[in-house]
Design a protein around this nucleic acid. Structure first.
Lengths: 142, 142
DNA sequence: TATATTCTGGATACACGATATCCATAAAGA
DNA sequence: TCTTTATGGATATCGTGTATCCAGAATATA
């Protein structure tokens, strides 16, 4: 029940780009400023490109820019680009049937947790995150 | 960002015991009815015992009963007994300082997600889970 | 006392996915 | 042509959730 480092990398990259959304930012630049392993970042960026969150340009002076306005990119978009469909318990995939053959007492709770989480992620845009100031402290790298 | 199988096992065991809170239930019985590997269940039960959620009796006709009323056991209690302190992002542990030396844009969001989750887990007691009927389907085992 | 049953605790093995690295290739600007 | 940068796939590493095994202690019952 933890946010993966990969998702953290993705959000950090996007907020970094988001500070100057027009300018192109190369993988190398992002990698160095955000302390993300270059080759691993490559994999992350590809997913963000594929999901239409980021635009990429190849060649010298190439790099990445946001494909949409920061206000139009929700944290849910980012989450799903990296992790796929949000599903905090396996059985929520629908096709699973319980061998126990009894109604599940805990599913409704996890459902509620997931719904509230999705709601928050959906309401939060990149723009808001850029505006928000970290109050409680700093992200730990590594 | 997923509920671990271990936590699922723990909740299933407790709801199973909770159906007849007075009666002693042996590990073997729980294991068979809930399809949980016996030896692994042993580890789980020890944690629940240590955290005072469950009482254990050794010897023939031994087993487990709830130590508190189902209404006094929250899902948060169970979660923390199994996983330890709830913390959906690493940096929330407090002693971590970010090498980036900049305010973290995403921490406030995860903080909100965690708070809402803790609230739901706290409000939900074993008693409520026992009363609730699974609406969406069944838990998939394995 | 003897025996069977059950929990306890530690050591260890396994599996899988998150994390990371490498490289050959394509695109594009100078 | 040369350099820079992204692409895509293959592969390696590593942590941890998951699972297994076993010797020992407790205790009820005969």
């Amino acid at each position: 029940m933890q946010v993966t480092k990969t998702l953290d990398y993705a959000v950090r990259s996007l907020t970094y780009i988001g500070h100057k959304p027009i300018v192109k930012h190369s993988m190398r630049e992002i990698s160095e400023h955000q302390h993300i392993p270059l080759n691993y970042l490559a994999k992350i960026m590809r997913r963000l490109v594929k999901k239409g969150i980021v635009r990429s340009m190849v060649g010298p002076d190439g790099g990445y820019t946001l494909r949409k306005a920061p206000g139009d990119i929700s944290l849910r978009d980012i989450y799903e680009a990296i992790e796929g469909e949000i599903r905090i318990v396996e059985c929520m995939e629908g096709n699973g049937i319980c061998r126990l053959h009894e109604t599940c007492p805990q599913l409704p709770v996890w459902d509620r947790v997931q719904l509230s989480m999705v709601k928050i992620l959906e309401e939060t845009t990149l723009e808001q995150m850029l505006a928000e100031r970290g109050i409680r402290g700093f992200i730990k790298v590594n």
